[in-house]
Simulated scan of single mutants.
Amino acid sequence: MSHDSDQRLVEAVRAGDATAVAEFLAGGANPDVAASRFQGPVIVDAARDGRLDLVQLLMDAGASIGPSGHFNVTPLRVAMLEGRAEVVRHLLAHGALATETVKRTSLLTEAVSYTRHRPGPAAVDTLRVLLEAGATPHPAEEALLITGVVGPVPPVVLRLLLAHGADPDQKRSDGTPAIVIAARHGDDAAVDTLVEAGADVNAGDRQGRTALMHAVERNERRVIATLLTAGAATGTVSSDGMTALQLARGWQRQNVQFMLGERQVGLDSVPIERTFVRIIPAAARLAGDPPMLHLLASAIDIALEDLGDDEWDTRTGVDAGTARAVALRLRDEITPATHGSWYELPVTADELAAPRSALVELAYGTTRAMPDGVDRWALTDLLEELDRQLGR
């Protein structure tokens, strides 16, 4: 058949013209013709576009569904990546899974990962189709649940894997349980999903550190609450002699100490074995729109006026003069970001403490005055968002 006829087939596939595709195939066009010099065969294009009718026509004409090109591209993998569940189902029914190469990440592992990178109902539906077809990871790959927790993927994906037989107590190749990985990541949704599926809430890693211990050390309070309400043991001792409470004391995490049952807490210097490196920045950059940055300035002004300099110094530990200077800078020195649409102000750690301390006073202290048009809940939300970024 002539090159002209093959090229017309390529154009018909690109246009999604099923009638023309059938006509050119009937006339002898090559069903494996490449879409271009650097692209795979036209069936790959049809699969990518989710055109099951075109895929069927090409397959009926003898098109190959195996790997092609330097990257071993297959219509099945392309359809999976694009979330074309019906095309995936059709290709699987015609043996496409057996044509996948072991030189690439397994189709199933990649499908799990793609629910994170390109989330949506189509990605979940495609993963479900692969699971129902019996697809498996390569022997050297991590178990799917571990891939999902490490991702991390949305909880719906973890529930889907668990519904298809994944072990909620699955361990990574180094012996770390999935629930511990989720706790280290601060993924309370994944922790809750695993607990609901029956995971051992007290499972430990190779050092005997439980999910609760890791969550405590990283100050992941939502994870801590999830684990404690699920019955996590607070008195477990790791192989290096640590307990959750010791770790909380060693990092001076007072709120966590209360969560663990302490009645009185302090800032004692308690030596512990740490598995976590905390970043304590000496400088920062506040970024936002001018009204939000001006709001921080107003919070400082109000708190200073209400408390007075001496009380402010005592309650916050921040010099009142420094606080006033920061408020002035927040109004007069913010500048547009070089490569963004927001405004910025570089601040030292001491300067950053001023707006945060002001928010604490307005949200939880005795100060009753509020910036114009802002209520206490809005300031509480802003404070919590800052604290999350600061790892408090």
Rank of each mutant, 00 (worst) to 15 (best):
V360L: 04
M80P: 00
A111S: 15
V223F: 06
E220P: 00
T366C: 01
E23M: 08
R209H: 11
E141K: 11
V216D: 02
L92S: 10
N72M: 09
A297H: 02
I181P: 00
D200R: 13
Q7Y: 07
S2A: 10
E333G: 00
L260P: 05
Q252L: 01
D53N: 09
L162R: 09
A46L: 11
V153A: 13
L144K: 10
L52T: 06
A26G: 14
G27W: 01
V270W: 03
H3C: 00
A15D: 14
L145V: 11
R159I: 01
S113T: 09
A282W: 03
L307G: 01
R249P: 01
E311H: 03
T236E: 04
L267T: 12
G198T: 04
A323D: 02
D17T: 09
H70E: 15
A230Y: 05
L162S: 03
T109A: 14
L162I: 15
R218M: 10
L58S: 07
A378F: 04
L382S: 08
E361T: 00
S173N: 06
E262W: 04
Y364P: 00
P355G: 07
A29V: 10
G83F: 05
A327M: 03
G175K: 08
P177D: 04
M59D: 02
H94I: 08
M213R: 03
T126D: 10
L296A: 07
F24S: 05
Q252D: 13
L295G: 02
A26Y: 02
A98R: 13
T314A: 14
T147E: 14
H117R: 12
A190M: 02
G208L: 06
P139S: 09
E333D: 15
G340V: 00
G241L: 06
V201M: 05
D381M: 09
F24C: 05
P119A: 13
D188Q: 09
V150R: 15
I302Q: 06
D205Y: 04
D313S: 00
V191N: 03
R8T: 11
A61G: 07
G50E: 09
R356K: 15
L382F: 02
G28T: 10
L382N: 01
R356A: 09
A163K: 08
T136E: 15
L245I: 14
L130Q: 07
T275G: 12
L390R: 13
F71Q: 12
I146W: 05
R253K: 11
A327L: 06
E11N: 10
L345K: 08
V78P: 01
E273N: 11
A85Q: 09
L352N: 02
T101A: 13
